[in-house]
């Protein structure tokens, strides 16, 4: 039972409107899988299909090695879930709500589960004795994260988990992911923040307009999606542009005035050697934004 999520031809239409189409996903035990896509790409649709909150138009879902059309409830014991947009019972305190959900998720919680809940509450220090309707967005997000992990699930599915978290809480969350995979659990989480996904995920699936574009493993440099490079060389830019074909990993090269712009996914030392003979005024190298990457992947995908 190595695959914790496996979908085949997963498709969802909302009436006539497309949600997702023919999504084939595999997520394995012990990995953090990032699910990256711009707004409206189909991340939430995919996740809610996995949780059985939506019924697929067609396609199959297997979770923890089992077909979800049978005995789904017992599978849910081993799954944690944080929705992208959720409410909590405002009339309860954070602690009351977590205890209630623990009872629903685990029945009679084991000592390990109780300990895990307490550990999580200490890690994300907020005022759990206060009624939830007095919580800020980030505090609610913390309660949401805790409830998704406290029963020690084998698979946790999170829809944009870091939205609303401050940098300290985000850091605590990333640490939590490392610990969770350390005990063999798998994490599937959606995001539209490239940096976050690059940082914590072992593999990344990219979705746009309802279609899964490709699934990539991080390369050894940890940079999945290359760098956005601009070279200012008023005299040599045109010559550089013509010789770019000598290099591997150049995408979307363009000449703007005296500046050469491109997205580079190849070996950086090779690129620097390539630049050496030219007369360069300025050089910037930065991580691309999500839209750049999607444009590249989308084009590549269409060309295939």
């Amino acid at each position: 039972m190595d695959k914790v999520i496996e979908t085949r031809g997963l498709t969802k239409y909302y009436g006539a409107a497309l949600g997702i189409r023919d999504v084939d996903l595999v997520v394995r035990q012990g990995e953090v899988f990032g699910f990256l896509g711009p707004n409206g790409a189909g991340k939430t649709t995919t996740i809610r299909l996995l949780l059985g909150l939506l019924r697929p138009t067609r396609g199959e879902i297997r979770l923890l090695g089992q077909d979800t059309r049978r005995r789904f409830q017992s599978l849910l014991r081993d799954i944690g879930y944080l929705p992208g947009d959720f409410g909590l019972y405002g009339d309860l305190t954070g602690a009351q709500y977590l205890e209630y959900l623990m009872r629903l998720r685990a029945g009679r919680p084991t000592p390990e589960q109780k300990a895990a809940m307490n550990r999580l509450m200490r890690r994300f220090e907020i005022d759990f004795a206060k009624k939830i309707h007095g919580y800020s967005k980030g505090m609610k997000q913390v309660v949401g994260i805790i409830q998704a992990f406290m029963h020690l699930p084998r698979l946790t599915i999170l829809d944009e988990p870091t939205s609303g978290l401050d940098p300290i809480m985000q850091e605590a969350f990333y640490e939590l992911l490392v610990e969770e995979t350390g005990r063999g659990a798998a994490i599937f989480f959606s995001s539209h923040i490239l940096r976050e996904v690059e940082r914590v995920c072992g593999r990344v699936g990219m979705i746009k307009e309802g279609r899964l574009l490709n699934v990539e493993a991080m390369n050894e440099r940890g940079a999945l999606l290359g760098k956005k490079i601009a070279v200012k060389a008023p005299r040599d830019a045109a010559a550089m542009f013509q010789r770019l074909s000598e290099l591997d990993g150049v995408h979307d090269a363009a000449l703007r005035g005296g500046t050469l712009e491109l997205l580079f996914t190849g070996d950086m030392r090779q690129f620097l050697r390539f630049l050496a003979p030219f007369e360069i005024q300025d050089f910037t190298c930065e991580p691309p934004n999500t839209e750049d990457v999607f444009l590249r992947l989308y084009r590549a995908d269409r060309d295939v």
């Binding site: 949780l51 929705p83 405002g90 959900l101």
Partner: peptide, 14 residues
């Protein structure tokens, strides 16, 4: 309406 249903139904209860 209060968006609490998703979490509730992700618990192992029919």
């Amino acid at each position: 309406e209060c968006k609490t249903m998703d979490i509730l139904l992700s618990c192992p209860i029919r």
